Amino acid sequence: METLTYRFENGTRALPPQPRVVGVVGSGNLEVLIESMPQGGACTVEIKTAAAGFGATWQAVMLDFHERWQLMDASIAINDMGATPAVVSLRLDQAVETMLGALS
């Protein structure tokens, strides 16, 4: 297992203020957990993956995700067993949409 961590500063989109964890395991090989928590306006991401050596790919996926959502004060944990970048992006979007739906 390889662990990768990322921190994206200066987000502009807040998640619901109450602590909440959303898990998405729709693909059978990926779990995404998002929690709203104080991060000084940042979004932190920790990835645990069985597919070692794909740091550059993960970084590209996470940069794209951050540009799309601009989350602030969020902690994301990803448990991966070999999902493709497209599946990772889809599951991340689903998790955020679920969280933001709680605001409606």
Score class of each variant (00 low, 15 high):
Val21Trp: 12
Trp58Asn: 00
Glu67Gln: 14
Ala42Arg: 00
Ser75Gln: 10
Ile76Asp: 07
Val22His: 00
Glu35Ile: 08
Ile78Asn: 00
Val45Ser: 05
Ile76Met: 07
Ile47Pro: 09
Val21Arg: 13
Gly55Pro: 01
Gly55Ala: 09
Val61Cys: 11
Cys43Leu: 04
Asp64Arg: 14
Arg7Val: 15
Ser75Ile: 01
Val22Gln: 01
Asp73Tyr: 14
Arg20Trp: 13
Gly23Ala: 09
Thr84Asp: 14
Gln18His: 04
Lys48Ile: 08
Gly28Thr: 03
Gly26Met: 05
Gly23Asn: 14
Leu63His: 12
Thr44Val: 10
Ala86Tyr: 00
Ile76Lys: 06
Val45Met: 03
Leu30Phe: 08
Ser75Trp: 11
Arg13Glu: 00
Thr44Cys: 14
Val32Glu: 03
Gly55Thr: 07
Leu63Lys: 12
Ala56Gln: 12
Asp73Ala: 12
Arg7His: 12
Val25Trp: 06
Thr12Tyr: 00
Gly53Tyr: 06
Glu9Ala: 09
Gln18Tyr: 04
Leu63Gly: 05
Thr49Tyr: 07
Ala56His: 15
Phe54Gln: 05
Thr44Ile: 08
Val32Phe: 06
Thr49Ser: 11
Leu71Arg: 04
Lys48Tyr: 04
Val25Cys: 11
Trp58Tyr: 13
Ala86Thr: 04
Gly82Asp: 10
Met62Gly: 00
Gly23Trp: 05
Leu63Ile: 08
Gly82Arg: 08
Met62Glu: 00
Pro16His: 07
Met37Tyr: 13
Gln70Ile: 03
